[in-house]
Amino acid sequence: MTSFEPVSFLNSAGLRLHGTLHRPAVARSGAPAVILLSPGVKMRVGPGRLYVPLTRLFNDLGFCVLRFDFHGLGDSEGELAEKMLIEIYNHVEVGRYVDDTLCAVRWMRETHGFHEFMVGGLCGGATTAALAAGRDAEIRHLLCLGLAITLSSDAATPARYLTRGELDSRLQKYLRRLLDPKSWVRLLTFQSEYGVIWRSLKRLVIRDKPVANASDAVPTGTHMENANPLFPPAFFSFLQRGGRALLMFSEKDRLPSEYEEKFALPYAGRLANFRAQLDGKIIASANHVLSMPEWRQEMLSKVREWTVATVRD
């Protein structure tokens, strides 16, 4: 029978972080510990209890799972000083919770004797996992659901940083709304995103496509300006150590096109060396938080398949 217990440990700043440790009925010998990281300002249960079935899946496979709240969130100590949510997202993207994650790894190592880890989560949780994986060699597996590889300044200037895929999607939406009076009211009362509309319409004329970068040079250009500069070095460091990653995205999310256009294509040359260590899947029709049961089931099936194939005795 599986079991769980409330646990807590200190981060480097001395703040007590609270979580739950979930043990399998039959532990798999030598299995890595799984640490699930919260996205954004969510708690350790994840949006829509997303981490609950994930935890059960890993327990079922014989893995021990730790879920905990980052400092300033949920049950953990600390205060966040930011006034706007987007500022918090920015802090997450540049690694605010990497230290908490590394403290969790150290606590699991010192208290429970684990020496290999799978770290992951949704969105900002995946970003934190990737950044942490660049700094701790015992993180050997990354589970990234809706990995965010850009900085949230995107939201402040949406037109500037939208990908080609996003612009094409917006263009289709605008064309569908041509006969909607409410849309015209918004347009004529200065409520529309004019920059986005303009860049989308330009796609009718200029159909440029992203170009793969075969060299090791760091890609540059306007479309890369909100790409998180911390992600590529951390991710490649992890891959060079032999780490394995599962990258799953939701089709109705902006994140897969961001990953493709701002990381996979610009770094195609380097990524080619690590193809065998990477697996991926896009869940059709799914939204960012995998709201519907069928989307979750598809995600869980893929995670199970990847884990069984990747983590061998």
């Binding site: 966040l80 006034k83 706007m84 949510l85």
Partner: peptide, 8 residues
């Protein structure tokens, strides 16, 4: 719900 200001 998630709104632009952060509501601690």
């Amino acid at each position: 719900k998630e709104i632009r200001p952060f509501y601690g």
